[in-house]
């Protein structure tokens, strides 16, 4: 009889969402789980806008535009990653917002990321990209611990797949249909990558805005991106959600060029789906 595979499960709340970690193999220990939580908590502490943080301080300083010095390295790195993502997606990814959307277009960052200049009032909400960034920050910890297989979920939609499935082979991921339809929206075989799933379930049911207009994405759509980097996966899935159909090909090509893959599904909400019922209950 084979011995059960060592495993360790850790759940906690951070970044405004539920976080769940499954470690498998000899490295599956509480100490590693705690170290990963510490990394995620540190990212949360730096990027949160729900309590005082370096990001809220930055937002305060840029309330009227102007110049701000960024001392906090996590915030600095997140800003650099965001600005790079903004450029790569042609402005479709934008975690900054101001009076007329399109925030990052009005921002410049010093070469070392130590100083930011905004030519108008602006504020940052790192939201999803913050989660992807946190996944990237966890990678060195997992590598240092020598663990071979792990899955880390931040809010169920930002997922780090470390190594392969604990029983061998790739991770078989089945993305459920967010509209409640039976069966999976997509089935993927993934290894050593980050997965980001962004969905709009129709008007009023998304937090994603089209940066150039400031209008919320109203089409029911799901964007699935697997990418070596968690932050890049989030950046691209957000951009794909906001993109018009003629903008998608360019984004998909960019993702593939960086070793990733993407799936975009436009779908209608079935009239009798569980989601439709929940929406009907939730909206007076």
């Amino acid at each position: 009889m084979t011995q059960p595979l060592p495993s360790f499960v850790h759940r906690f709340s951070a970044m405004g969402t539920r976080i769940e970690l499954h470690l498998f193999g000899d490295g599956a220990k509480a100490a590693l789980a705690n170290a990963l939580q510490a990394v995620i908590d540190a990212v949360d502490d730096a990027l949160t806008i729900h309590r005082p943080s370096p990001t809220t301080q930055l937002n305060e300083r840029l309330r009227g535009g102007g110049v701000a010095v960024i001392d906090e390295p996590i915030l600095r790195n997140a800003l650099q990653a965001s600005i790079a993502g903004h450029r790569k997606t042609g402005g479709l990814f934008d975690p900054a917002f101001g009076p007329h959307a399109a925030g990052l277009a009005h921002v410049s960052l010093g070469d070392a990321g130590e100083q930011i200049v905004a030519d108008r009032a602006i504020a940052f909400d790192f939201g999803g990209v913050g989660k992807g960034f946190a996944l990237d920050c966890c990678r060195p910890v997992l590598a240092g611990a020598g663990v071979e297989s792990a899955i880390l979920s931040l809010g169920d939609s930002s997922i780090l797949l470390w190594g392969g499935h604990p029983l061998g082979g790739d991770w078989p991921i089945a993305i459920p249909d967010p509209c409640g339809a039976e069966g999976s929206l997509a089935e993927l075989a993934l290894r050593d990558c980050c997965l980001s799933v962004s969905s709009s379930q129709g008007a009023g049911q998304t937090a994603t805005l089209r940066p150039d207009t400031g209008i919320a994405v109203s089409e029911p759509r799901t964007a699935i991106v697997a990418h070596p980097s968690g932050a890049r996966a989030e950046i691209f899935s957000t951009a794909l959600l906001a993109a018009h159909s003629d903008e998608r090909a360019c984004l998909v090509a960019a993702i593939k060029g960086e070793g990733g893959m993407a799936i975009i599904v436009d779908h209608a909400v079935p009239a009798n789906s569980a989601l439709q019922r929940d929406l009907a209950e939730a909206i007076p």
Partner: peptide, 22 residues
């Protein structure tokens, strides 16, 4: 997933779907 691994079963992991609930 945890249950499957404990049972030495490798099956699709349903994750990444809907994250909005009433």
């Amino acid at each position: 997933l945890a249950k499957d691994v404990a049972n030495n079963a490798r099956r699709p992991i349903p994750i990444g779907g809907r994250t909005w609930w009433p």
